[in-house]
């Protein structure tokens, strides 16, 4: 980037708020990836990383949801410890779980689009439940489609084995995260924020 000494291009007030929210949701997704929990139906420890993707889509909408998760991917690639278990670096994007990382911006964008439509943001408490459910379902499909194909390509296994390793064990956790995202969208505490 060249140093511009001719003038100052101020960031517009609305853009400041959006950029800051996008960055904080990217950081929040990183923080949630450190939190793991156990479900009685599965031996897999689930992290809450994908919950960050869902929340960004629901609360920021299609454009800034996409932008926020794109920021998450770039920040992790250049060294911010935001990927699962505090990892970071360009190498992660080409690792067996790299497909998931590539999918996050698209999943958040799709969820935002389905939940809010094209014309501005709907207050989260007023998003119809069917739109939320369809958006969350669509985002989950995008994440696992990218994730499974990424696993097959970067881990060098067949697509069937990739589905077994990278998708099937995680489905119960995604259902729970979807429910939590819907609860957060309906939360009175957040409606005031």
């Amino acid at each position: 980037m060249s140093t511009d000494t001719e003038g100052v291009a101020l960031v517009a007030d609305e853009a400041v708020a959006n950029v800051v929210r996008a960055a904080l949701f990217a950081a929040l997704t990183g923080v949630l990836s450190y939190v793991s929990f156990q479900l009685p139906v599965s031996p897999v420890p689930y992290t809450l990383q994908v919950l960050g993707v869902f929340l960004a889509g629901v609360f920021l909408g299609p454009t800034w949801g996409f932008a926020s998760l794109a920021l998450y991917v770039v920040a992790g690639a250049v060294g911010a410890p935001v990927y699962a278990y505090g990892a970071s670096g360009v190498g992660q994007l080409f690792s067996p779980w790299g497909g998931y990382l590539w999918s996050y911006p698209f999943a958040a964008g799709l969820l935002g689009y389905v939940a809010h439509g094209r014309d501005g943001l709907t207050p989260t408490g007023e998003i119809p439940l069917w739109r939320l459910a369809a958006g969350l379902g669509g985002a989950t499909v995008v994440i696992y489609a990218f994730g499974t194909v990424g696993y097959a390509v970067f881990a060098g296994v067949g697509l069937g084995a990739a589905v077994l390793a990278a998708a099937v064990p995680f489905v119960p956790g995604e259902i729970l995260k979807g429910v939590v995202a819907a609860l957060a969208a309906r939360s009175d505490r957040l409606r005031a924020a």
């Binding site: 007030d13 708020a17 505490r189």
Partner: peptide, 29 residues
């Protein structure tokens, strides 16, 4: 998980609003 997520979101929104105000006051470019 819902308690954790909603609490974390509420705090993130508070921090975002305070930061946005500070950045506007400092003429973010």
């Amino acid at each position: 998980v819902a308690h954790l997520a909603i609490g974390a979101l509420a705090r993130a929104f508070r921090r975002a609003d305070a930061l946005a105000l500070a950045l506007r006051a400092r003429c973010l470019s």
